[in-house]
């Protein structure tokens, strides 16, 4: 049973899974060997072989440069900077951005020991200088680390003739004022606009 224990221990390290849920997932796969287990093994194998990090933006795709970087219909001069690939996928899913992307691979963080050298910032600087970028959209998370990373990047390009923007801050859709914290309310008032 040691291989089963090893598998449970491995699965329990996946995000959102603990030992109990890992056991449940594995039991489900074992019960449905024909349909799920084989397909899972095949697909994981395929993904492991096929998927690569895009050397330009650090997106994950089957080729490098990725499809987004190679897409000629996209606006080259506009780069959206995100923390993780999942953020890129979230923006892509909504068709919100017609330019290119750049994945930082995290944010500056004291607790995790992540400094600028650990992030994909030097490639961004190279890319911006080479491609004549006109706008950088800083789409980092609304946390102190996310904001500080955005401000750090903005500081690097402060002497370049580039428009640097960040995503709007304020009330989320479907929210109620009563539930909002001071910071969100403050930012919502500050960024109010004429209707």
């Amino acid at each position: 049973m040691s291989s089963l224990d090893d598998l449970i221990s491995l699965f329990s390290k996946l995000p959102g899974l603990g030992p109990r849920s890992a056991r449940r997932v594995i039991l489900f796969l074992l019960k449905n060997r024909q349909y799920f287990l084989k397909d899972t093994i095949n697909l994981l194998n395929k993904v492991n072989i096929e998927l690569v990090d895009c050397e330009v933006c650090r997106n994950i795709d089957t080729k490098t440069p990725c499809r987004i970087c190679q897409d000629e219909l996209r606006v080259n001069e506009r780069i959206c900077v995100v923390e993780e690939v999942s953020d890129l996928w979230a923006i892509e899913k909504c068709n919100l951005h017609d330019g290119k992307y750049h994945v930082l691979g995290g944010v500056l963080s004291a607790i995790d020991g992540v400094g600028p050298d650990e992030l994909n910032i030097s490639n961004l600087v190279k890319k911006v200088n080479m491609e004549g970028t006109k706008e950088i959209i800083l789409a980092t998370n609304s946390t102190v680390e996310g904001q500080l990373t955005a401000q750090y990047i903005a500081d690097i390009f402060k002497n370049n003739d580039i428009l640097i923007t960040r995503l709007a801050q304020g009330l989320p859709m479907g929210s109620e004022l009563d539930f909002m914290d001071n910071g969100t309310l403050l930012e919502s008032f500050r960024s109010r606009k004429k209707i």
Binding site: A110, S142, V144, Q147, L148, Q151, Y152, A154, D155, Q169, D181, N182, G183, T184, L186, E187, R190
Partner: peptide, 24 residues
């Protein structure tokens, strides 16, 4: 309960940097 939110967006990079450095 949050008593006072840090005014993350009202200060520029440098002020935020020294305050976060103090907390680090």
């Amino acid at each position: 309960e949050i008593r006072n939110s840090f005014p993350l967006y009202s200060e520029e990079y440098f002020s935020n940097l020294i305050k976060i450095s103090a907390s680090e």
